[in-house]
Design a protein around this nucleic acid. Sequence first.
DNA 1: TCTGGGGTCCTAGGACCC
DNA 2: TCTGGGGTCCTAGGACCC
Length: 431
Amino acid sequence: MFALVDGNNFYVSCERVFRPSLVGRPVVVLSNNDGCAIARSNEAKALGVRMGHPWFQCRHLEAQGLVALSANFALYGDMSDRMMSLVAHHAPRQEIYSIDESFLDFTGIRGNRTAIGHALREQVLTWTGLPTCVGFGATKTLAKLANHVAKTAERKPGLYPPELAQVCDFGRLSDEQLDAVFAATEVGEVWGVGRRIGTALVESGVRTVLDLKHADPAALRRNFSVVLEKTVRELQGTSCVDLDDQPRQKQQIMVSRSFGQGVLRLEDLNEAVSTFAARAAEKLRLDASAAGAVLVFIRTSPFRASDAQYSGSVTVPMVQPTSDTGRIVRAACNGLRQIFRPGFRYAKAGVMLVDLGSEGQSQGELDLEPTEIDRSRLMAVMDGVNQRFGRGSLSMASTGTIGPARQWGMRQERRTPDYTTSWRDIPIVRA
DNA sequence: TCTGGGGTCCTAGGACCC
DNA sequence: TCTGGGGTCCTAGGACCC
């Protein structure tokens, strides 16, 4: 038996903890560059704001009270840590699946799960201020679906029995009750069924979750893939995806950004790519990993149809796997020079570290060149300084300086303070 | 004017091997 | 006219997730 605990409208809820006046109002959190809506309060959903809705297309709703905030990931990450550590206490094993969701292993846990779920919710709400919903199911796919039902029953009364709101335990429903819930749920709500496969399923007559549960797994494997076959078996109650509570070493590390305005010059791109490469190298060392190659890409904006379009990328192999910021930045900049074409208005660039392996497990190199000094201690010092005095305190010269001169900088006009992660921004309570 | 960022997994197809 | 059979490995692209 699995549980899935998921924050409601997570980013919006984090903002509301520190600005209670936003409770009950339509609120959205915008992506980087204040580009589009990536989180919406229930009230904002009711106004018709979609996930990924471009802000310039829905900002007229400000007249109806819609509040938009720039994404504050430092805040959300910290609130997530608080929530996760509380949730972890309710079961022997926890898998943190995303910033706002974790699976719990409820195998062998006795008692009324619905009551346990409500107690967990209450604790998280009281201790962190974050509302959550809890779903229980015999497989991870079922637990995800139960969580969806718990949320939807709370938000849109009428579709599901009201007692399933907030906490929904499929294990307590009879076969008939469960089938009724499945029949009322569109197939696209199932974990692993996205837009493409959802459309194909509906066209073949599989409209609801119940239809999918009764589909032939072998046929789905033939027509789609083994992934969908597993999904159906999980819907039928056979667990195919285990709980994974061991954080694995990442297989790739990416840092990319869209620019606040179009960028034309190689020098500006070079600054951006250097910055992204340096940040990626930091993440790499945090993972105790080393990169065998560095991929760089740049591209124009596909939304500016009148602009000439270009997209280029190149993978630069490293002589030896490394986590050294200097080498990685150099490789990225070399790659950039290979793919840069003048005369385009660039909208985005990124650096991806690939061929990752554990630090110190790399193959040795025949020592034909004079040995470079071991810079791992330098990196440790750099990370230490930046940890203590803030990101960017020590940086490579090629990343340029932070400030308005930075052509490629991000637009963030509605950012809230770092309430929980910066001394400067600690809220002050007045009686 | 203005459209996010960071991941994983699977599959098909090509290169290459004997 | 007509050109084998059986593998492995790698990559690019596409699907999905949040």
